[in-house]
Computed example of a mutant assay.
Amino acid sequence: MTATVHSLRNRPPASIDRLVALTAPGLTAVNHVIIDRMQSPVALIPELAGHLIAGGGKRLRPMLTLGCAALLEYGGARHHKLAAAVEFIHTATLLHDDVVDASGLRRGKATANRLWGNPASVLVGDFLFSRSFELMVEDGSLKVLKILSHASAIIAEGEVAQLTAQRNVETGEDRYLEIITAKTAALFAAACQIAAIVAERDASVEAALQAYGRNLGIAFQLVDDAIDYVSDADTMGKDSGDDFRDGKITLPVILAYARGSEDQRNFWREAMSGRAVADADLAKARTLLLESRAVEDTMARARMYGAKAIDAISGFPNGLAKTALVETVEFAIARAY
């Protein structure tokens, strides 16, 4: 499949309304699967899982599975269970992430670990992982099972890699990109790639959708890491400055540290070590990030990866599905900023 380089269109406000409308019938079926499969005679499981699943998320990853299937004009229903499996994997990782990060707020609501405690959150996350694998097995495709199970392993590796990089200001940009490609982009990529499997398309189509999802996922995480410093809790649905207080080494910090004076580098060492995380320190960090253009350049990198995502599907016929997928990239970069 040949491709030409596309630039992101600059036409605010960006929206995923077209993807939502395109996938609405399929997403209704996916939601039925989700509700059915999160049930358990152990009452705490559907209660806790339902708190997060019904917590205002856009269902972006399952919508990508459905949107990519629409791009390929797939008319079957296999992708409904698989999109639900993707959402279960995502939800399980959120439950585990909030425990690791000791987060108290997600999507503007109290996190499950704050309400029910860490042990319950971890175990219900394990339950949802198990449900996702049941759905994969029911689909019957070893290739789909391989793609999604591999993505699950890669996500876990990415989370561990992020943990080992935490508070280490010497972490480089290449290592950071490896981490976010694993912990975030791997599931985006798999969610898109499996559409080509159920539609029985060739390897070039599979690779194109996988590249679309991977680059979209990288752009998505870059934006997340930028807006943690320049947005607010109401906009983000989580506590502002969480990454700063947790000592997470994200691209804005990497760039600001590399460009800073020795005094500024000492500040970042103190802050990322956890010894300077007061509100005044966060305010200083924001000033340094803006002065060094670290946030601006992080967003520029997000736009670059967004352009790569759009380029990956440039060879597909124009139509509603392709437009919706392009606009999804634009939304991912413009959101909450």
Rank of each mutant, 00 (worst) to 15 (best):
residue 96 H to F: 10
residue 331 F to H: 09
residue 180 I to E: 11
residue 20 V to I: 15
residue 162 Q to M: 06
residue 336 A to V: 03
residue 158 G to R: 11
residue 131 R to K: 14
residue 243 D to G: 03
residue 199 A to I: 14
residue 328 T to P: 02
residue 169 V to S: 03
residue 198 V to S: 05
residue 184 T to R: 01
residue 8 L to E: 07
residue 253 V to N: 02
residue 116 W to D: 05
residue 180 I to M: 10
residue 315 G to E: 12
residue 41 P to C: 05
residue 37 R to M: 08
residue 19 L to T: 14
residue 27 L to K: 02
residue 127 F to Y: 12
residue 15 S to P: 06
residue 32 H to M: 12
residue 293 R to P: 05
residue 154 I to L: 13
residue 266 N to W: 08
residue 24 A to K: 13
residue 255 L to W: 09
residue 238 K to Y: 06
residue 7 S to P: 02
residue 46 P to Q: 08
residue 182 A to H: 14
residue 236 M to K: 06
residue 131 R to N: 04
residue 314 S to T: 00
residue 270 E to M: 11
residue 311 D to A: 14
residue 43 A to T: 12
residue 276 A to T: 03
residue 3 A to H: 15
residue 18 R to V: 14
residue 91 T to Y: 10
residue 283 A to T: 02
residue 193 Q to K: 15
residue 290 L to C: 08
residue 79 H to T: 05
residue 52 L to M: 04
residue 175 R to L: 13
residue 237 G to T: 09
residue 146 K to G: 09
residue 227 I to F: 10
residue 15 S to H: 07
residue 158 G to A: 01
residue 211 A to D: 14
residue 62 P to T: 15
residue 18 R to H: 10
residue 117 G to L: 10
residue 11 R to I: 11
residue 65 T to Y: 09
residue 202 D to I: 12
residue 260 G to V: 04
residue 180 I to F: 11
residue 269 R to I: 15
residue 16 I to Y: 04
residue 102 A to C: 10
residue 73 E to I: 00
residue 122 V to R: 09
residue 206 E to Y: 12
residue 181 T to P: 00
residue 56 G to P: 15
residue 239 D to C: 11
residue 121 S to K: 04
residue 200 E to C: 10
residue 14 A to W: 03
residue 97 D to K: 04
residue 22 L to H: 09
residue 321 A to I: 08
residue 231 S to Q: 09
residue 155 I to G: 00
residue 227 I to R: 07
residue 67 G to C: 02
residue 167 R to N: 09
residue 75 G to Q: 15
